[in-house]
């Protein structure tokens, strides 16, 4: 009895005393629930309806999903494009970010600062991918075309950005160019924090070269950091859309590089088919969350 009373007393005093904390947490969490949690939950609900912002919401069951996977060819195309992009730039971008961070760490602090800037710069300048539009421009003044022409490799300028054959590789190159982002910086910081004692112990235990050191000491100590960069990489590679729309337009030639996000944006904010857009975003959430959970489990198993 007295225990219960004590507990309640403690709780009361704690709320009385903790209210400033509540006040400080409120602004962010209000916005977070309003603009992240509620949108996610409401798109699950909206995905079973037909809604165009003007007429009343109509329940349609799984019609949207049926349309997505059976009748609408464009969804399967963008799904395929997105998965190709994710496979090429996700693991590729992650490995590049880790490898370069590891290499940068081999240098002295001053060189390290300079090199980090060089590799981080494309991602730092968010919209700088416009440069590639000029480089790949389709007439003979496009930088790549004019180089190839003057070298005699080609005789006619190639229309890189309106040829389905070239678009996907170009988007992959540009995305990789910008992939040295937050995960790259966090990898550098994480690598600096791996304790030197571990390396010394490893040297005594007979690690012969830096590759063994990387595999047996660095990677296991970086487990949490790696999960963070994996999450960042999933986030950026699943949501490539600005690059494709700006370089290739929407829709791109033969729908060759349109992604789930660009289709969703078009359906939702241009055609105002909110129900269908919500269904697409639900599939996107599931894909991203699924990838995240599987990779998280995988890293946990690897860590043991």
């Amino acid at each position: 009895m007295s225990r219960i009373k004590n507990k309640r007393l403690h709780n009361e005093s704690s709320l009385k005393e903790q209210w400033p904390m509540l006040v400080m947490m409120l602004p962010f969490f209000t916005l977070f629930f309003l603009l992240t949690i509620i949108p996610i939950i409401s798109s699950v609900f909206l995905s079973t309806t037909s809604f165009d912002l003007l007429n009343p919401i109509k329940f349609v069951g799984i019609d949207n999903y049926f349309r997505m996977f059976v009748t609408d060819d464009s969804f399967l195309t963008v799904l395929k494009n997105t998965l190709i992009l994710v496979l090429m730039t996700g693991p590729g971008g992650f490995l590049l970010a880790f490898l370069l961070a590891w290499i940068v760490n081999e240098f002295s602090p001053t060189t390290r600062t300079l090199l980090s800037f060089m590799f981080y710069a494309p991602s730092l300048c968010g919209n700088a991918f416009f440069i590639w539009k000029i480089i790949f421009s389709g007439d003979s003044y496009g930088y790549l075309n004019s180089i190839l022409l003057s070298l005699g490799v080609i005789t006619e300028p190639i229309t890189f950005l309106s040829d389905a054959k070239y678009l996907m590789p170009i988007v992959i190159i540009v995305q990789l160019w910008q992939s040295m982002g937050i995960s790259f910086l966090s990898n550098i910081a994480g690598l600096q924090n791996v304790s030197n004692d571990l390396y010394e112990a490893g040297a005594i235990d007979g690690l012969r070269n830096r590759w063994q050191e990387l595999w047996y000491i660095t990677l296991p100590s970086m487990q949490h950091m790696i999960l963070f960069s994996v999450v960042m990489q999933i986030q950026s590679s699943f949501t490539v859309s600005a690059i494709t729309t700006e370089l290739a337009g929407y829709p791109s030639v033969g729908y060759s590089v349109d992604t789930i996000v660009s289709l969703m944006t078009d359906v939702g904010t241009v055609r105002y088919e909110m129900g269908y857009a919500a269904a697409i975003s639900c599939v996107l959430f599931l894909l991203m969350a699924g990838t995240r959970i599987i990779l998280g489990k995988f890293l946990q198993i690897m860590g043991k």
Binding site: F32, I40, A242, V261, M264, A289
Partner: peptide, 21 residues
């Protein structure tokens, strides 16, 4: 929840956010 939501950026959420906005 916050940690898991790191996964979603403003581009992923743009359409679901549209209605709220």
């Amino acid at each position: 929840i916050v940690q898991f939501a790191l996964l979603f950026n403003t581009y992923t959420l743009s359409v679901p956010q549209y209605l709220i906005l």
